[in-house]
Design a protein around this nucleic acid. Structure first.
Lengths: 208, 208
DNA sequence: AGTTCTATCGGTCACTTGCCCGATAAGCGG
DNA sequence: CCGCTTATCGGGCAAGTGACCGATAGAACT
């Protein structure tokens, strides 16, 4: 009758269990939000006791921070692949198209979530700042490589990267609460990038 | 010994008490965030019982939504005064300078807060959308009046308004977690407005 | 096989939350 | 001055939270 399989205690390697927990929390964060990461909900997903989760993360805030960091790190590598044979133009077009696509909506929403929650959780705030730096560095170096190959033209790669990220954040914040946004405005990031980098209009519009 | 003044029951006009409650909640929202609006905290601020607050707002979510709407409405009228003798250029410059000033930080943070919390609270989401429309309308009509007086030049006033608001949201979202932002990027909104409206650089930079 | 370490369990505790209830008293109309 | 409406009180309940504890059982090592 009861679905409870009592006594079936499974003991895993700490690193493996810890990874399991973070991954379950990540699924939760992406679908329901960071505030839904509670000891009991994560434990239920893995069919373990809440005290086991507490054993790996004595302070719940640390689990929340680590979960955000994990997702942000993973998604960044999806947005900007490090060793790619594509040209900087192609890679930037890929970045822009993916970052504002529907399938990336959950990630953008997670950033919004984390930025707000960082107000109350110092550990998370630190992670948000660190990941923000990381994203900015990666986008900056992508732009810089475009400058090196003479595809992009700007004097301050970092400022351009920052501006692009600001626009993406603003768009996803607004889209989060209100989906009725005209496509003209949704192309802001592409337009901004093309203007700032002195590219012909349309250069970044299509994915390779 | 006890600071409790028992039996001192004060009965106020419903409209007055209701306004008191919303105002106390607004103070709370601006300083500590919308999730700190609880029956007991608001009640404590007014030295009344939590059940009294519950009497006026049977669902706490309604108090949260109304509080946000109240603040957003009030602050909008600070940003854009309706019957002003100033020129559209002066009014837009005032808007931009105030919207990104330090003293407006709390309001921007409240917007971020509301946009995120709207995910869980349908009533609040409705309010966020409505207020978003309201801000956009007001900024659009300000730009339109500038077009009429031949100060601004653009074909789509609403699109420009939307873009300006997107940039402001993105900037305040990023500034919320990370205050180390270069001033070049903080001028994004001004630069964007001047470019989109075909104004000479620097036109919107100073407050009248 | 025996020993040791610790991952995991099962349960508890104190706290906060929103919501609800009956009792009381303030103010108004008659 | 009386009676009615209802704003306000005082208290309580159930649900959910993070943190904590001692007991147990896997697994590695001798």
């Amino acid at each position: 009758m009861s679905s409870r399989v009592t006594g079936n205690r499974v003991r895993k390697a700490p690193a493996e269990r810890r990874a399991e927990i973070v991954e379950a929390a990540a699924r939760l964060a992406l679908t329901e939000g960071l505030e839904c990461i509670t000891l009991r909900r994560v434990a239920d997903m893995l069919a373990i006791r809440n005290s086991t989760v507490g054993h790996y993360f004595p302070a719940t805030e640390d689990l929340v921070a680590e979960t955000f960091g994990h997702v942000a790190e993973t998604e960044l590598s999806t947005l900007i692949s490090a060793d790619n044979e594509a040209t900087p133009t192609q890679r930037l077009a890929h970045f822009l198209s993916l970052a504002l696509s529907a399938e990336f909506h959950d990630v953008n929403r997670l950033w919004l979530n984390a930025r707000h929650l960082a107000r109350y959780r110092p550990t998370l705030r630190e992670r948000v700042i660190r990941q923000g730096d990381h994203w900015r560095e990666r986008l900056t170096s992508l732009i810089q490589s475009g400058i090196d190959t003479d595809e992009f033209h700007t004097t301050d790669a970092e400022a351009v990267a920052l501006k692009i990220l600001v626009v993406i954040d603003g768009l996803s914040a607004d889209l989060n609460a209100d989906p009725r946004f005209p496509t003209t405005v949704q192309q802001m990031a592409v337009d901004l990038a093309e203007t700032e980098l002195h590219l012909a209009p349309g250069t970044l519009r299509h994915t390779p």
